[in-house]
Simulated assay, not measured.
Amino acid sequence: MSSKTAESMRWHHDGRIDDGLLRHLADSLAWKSFDQKFPRFAGVPRNVRLGLASDGFNPFKIMITSYSTWPVVLVPYNLPSWICMKQPSFVLSKIIPGEKDLGHDIDIYLQPLIEKLRQLCAGVQTFDVLIKENFNLRAALLWIISDFPAYANLSGWSTEGRYARPCCVAETCSMWLYNEKKL
């Protein structure tokens, strides 16, 4: 509904210099690959591309307690590079407090957010103040940003044991250390 925000959300399509240099995520191979795979989504510059960032921390700085808090932040990557990584652009979508480390149970807390993201992927009617018309806004989650232990929680993939490297899967080269009794 804000003309300034609406114009900035189209910047990746209308205002970005495409000179082959990596200056914005829209210049990345992942963004371009997504555009090729989903040309109908890419054909509408108002559609939103999101990143999700999360990590758990102990807010009380007391290491003897297992209390943890997980902020879940959405980052709209359509915005210009000098705006999208600034705090006012972040969307704090959820704060998950817990008496213990959430581990793989985080998916239970993320279900409402996932449902909202699915609705956005299908499209929701909204108003474009720049051209003064309603349109079907869609959003896609392109990236998840986390450290390696949080990656295990968010993706459900084990980052421990024989297949700890998700990019290698079964081709992971691991070795059992007999004296240490670990991989």
Rank of each mutant, 00 (worst) to 15 (best):
S2E: 13
S3C: 07
A6R: 08
A6M: 08
A6Y: 03
M9N: 05
R10G: 04
H12E: 00
H13I: 09
G15R: 05
G15V: 01
D18R: 09
D19W: 09
G20F: 11
L21Y: 11
L22C: 13
H24F: 01
L25H: 11
S28I: 11
A30M: 06
A30C: 04
A30T: 05
W31G: 01
W31P: 07
S33L: 14
S33F: 08
F34D: 10
K37F: 13
K37H: 08
K37A: 14
R40G: 02
F41T: 00
F41M: 00
A42H: 01
A42D: 07
A42E: 04
A42T: 00
V44A: 09
V44T: 10
R46M: 10
N47V: 08
N47D: 07
L50Q: 01
G51D: 06
L52S: 05
S54F: 00
S54I: 00
D55Q: 02
G56A: 06
F57A: 12
F57H: 14
N58A: 06
P59E: 06
P59C: 05
K61R: 15
K61L: 09
K61W: 08
K61C: 11
I64C: 15
I64M: 14
S68Q: 15
P71C: 05
P71A: 00
P71G: 12
V72W: 08
L74E: 02
L74K: 02
V75R: 03
P76C: 13
Y77F: 12
N78P: 11
L79C: 04
S81A: 14
Q87K: 15
Q87R: 15
P88V: 01
S89K: 01
S89W: 06
K94E: 05
E99P: 12
K100N: 13
K100F: 08
K100C: 13
L102Y: 05
L102V: 10
L102M: 14
D105C: 14
I106A: 10
I106P: 04
I106Y: 05
D107M: 07
I108P: 00
I108A: 13
I108G: 06
Y109D: 03
Y109H: 15
Q111D: 07
P112Q: 01
L113N: 02
L113H: 08
E115G: 07
L120T: 03
C121G: 03
A122G: 13
V124A: 12
T126P: 08
V129K: 09
I131T: 11
I131K: 15
E133H: 12
E133V: 03
E133R: 09
N136L: 15
L137A: 14
W143P: 02
W143Q: 05
I144F: 00
I144W: 08
I145W: 03
A152C: 14
A152R: 14
S155C: 11
W157A: 05
W157E: 02
T159F: 07
G161L: 11
G161M: 11
R162I: 11
V169P: 02
A170Q: 11
T172G: 01
C173F: 12
C173S: 04
W176Y: 15
W176E: 01
L177P: 00
L177E: 07
L177S: 09
Y178H: 07
N179M: 14
K182T: 15
